[in-house]
């Protein structure tokens, strides 16, 4: 029993189940009203987007400005399918189809562009996202600039939690594997990575495709929860917003991305009461935090129990000194 409790897997499972149960309880009792639920949904979707972009930019070191493009592929695919099959099964099919389509586009775009480095790659991915947006703007099936309206909301807390936790667990598992280390070695030094037998193109494309897949899931959930999508929602600014979360949390830190997604959503929600100053304060806070913590909130570290112990011992020592 002791051994079972000590195992990492069980600890994680208990933590996840407890989080899910607690929020579910708050929803049932009405503490979480529809307004808070909107914020919660935004947070979950942003976590998926940020963690998946962190895999590409933070861990593999490939600067991508096209994440909103992959998101829009998921959003449109899922909406088009749920409009024709208006059931939960239709939604799940649409979500998976959207994710797979986004991954496919990721592979097609990644193979030629991932030969580029740094700013060149950023420009190429930016161009890709714009092309995707223009295509959606001009197709009949996507209803052009007017966008698509989805009558049914299939996303509830259960699906939100399942896909958010799933994304975080799968990507952090990947990072902790030998394949993940191969990706990180490319970020550290591509020439040295190749010299020890890492096929850098293969792992760059792998990370890119995985990131696109999860961005597709995030897009699908966005379209289903917020009813309405149009090409403008997935423009350049959306990609930048995702990148801001990643950089704010720390390139190469999954827990950093999660914390940043939560914090930034809370900040922008609480500033909604002063709309005229909202963006000014938001931007000023970003600048301040980047000045004092240029490596992001978490740097490349992960939140862990040992980190908590370190903090608590620091606080303990401080208190002891005062007494």
């Amino acid at each position: 029993m002791q051994k079972l409790l000590g195992s990492n897997f069980l600890k994680k499972a208990i933590f996840l189940a407890a989080t899910f149960g607690l929020v579910q309880l708050l929803i049932v009792t009405g503490v979480i009203n529809p307004f808070i639920m909107d914020t919660l949904t935004t947070i979950c979707i942003n976590i998926i987007l940020a963690v998946s972009l962190n895999l590409i930019t933070g861990f593999t070191g490939q600067f991508s400005l096209g994440h909103a493009g992959f998101m829009s592929i998921g959003a449109y695919t899922c909406t088009i399918i749920t409009l024709r099959v208006p059931t939960t099964l239709g939604f799940i099919t649409g979500l998976l189809a959207g994710a797979i389509l986004a991954a496919l586009v990721g592979a097609v775009v990644g193979l030629p562009t991932l030969r580029l480095r740094g700013d060149y790659l950023a420009i190429a991915t930016l161009g890709m996202a714009e092309i995707i947006r223009i295509i959606f703007l001009n197709l009949d099936i996507t209803n052009g600039a007017a966008g698509l309206f989805n009558n049914n909301q299939y996303v509830n807390w259960f699906w939100l939690f399942l896909f958010t936790a799933g994304t975080v667990v799968l990507i952090s598992n990947f990072i902790k594997s030998s394949h993940g280390r191969a990706c990180i070695s490319i970020r550290e030094d591509e020439i040295a990575a190749e010299a020890v037998g890492i096929n850098s193109t293969k792992y760059k494309v792998t990370a890119f495709v995985m990131g696109a897949f999860f961005a597709g899931i995030a897009g699908s959930m966005h379209s289903s929860y917020f009813y309405f999508i149009k090409p403008d929602l997935f423009g350049f600014l959306k990609s930048i917003n995702i990148l801001v979360i990643v950089v704010f949390g720390g390139l190469g830190s999954i827990s950093g991305s999660i914390i940043a997604a939560i914090l930034l959503a809370l900040i922008s929600t609480s500033l909604q009461s002063i709309p005229e100053l909202q963006m000014v304060i938001y931007a000023a806070m970003l600048i301040t935090i980047m000045l004092f913590r240029p490596q992001g909130l978490m740097g490349s570290k992960e939140l862990s129990l040992s980190l908590f112990k370190k903090w608590s011992s620091l606080i303990h020592r401080k208190n002891g000194g005062e007494a």
Binding site: L170, N173, S177, S185
Partner: peptide, 17 residues
Amino acid sequence: IAMHKNLDYGLFASLFH
């Protein structure tokens, strides 16, 4: 990382540990 090239387990194993 230098031993990665002789690795046997695949992407599935790395995702699901």
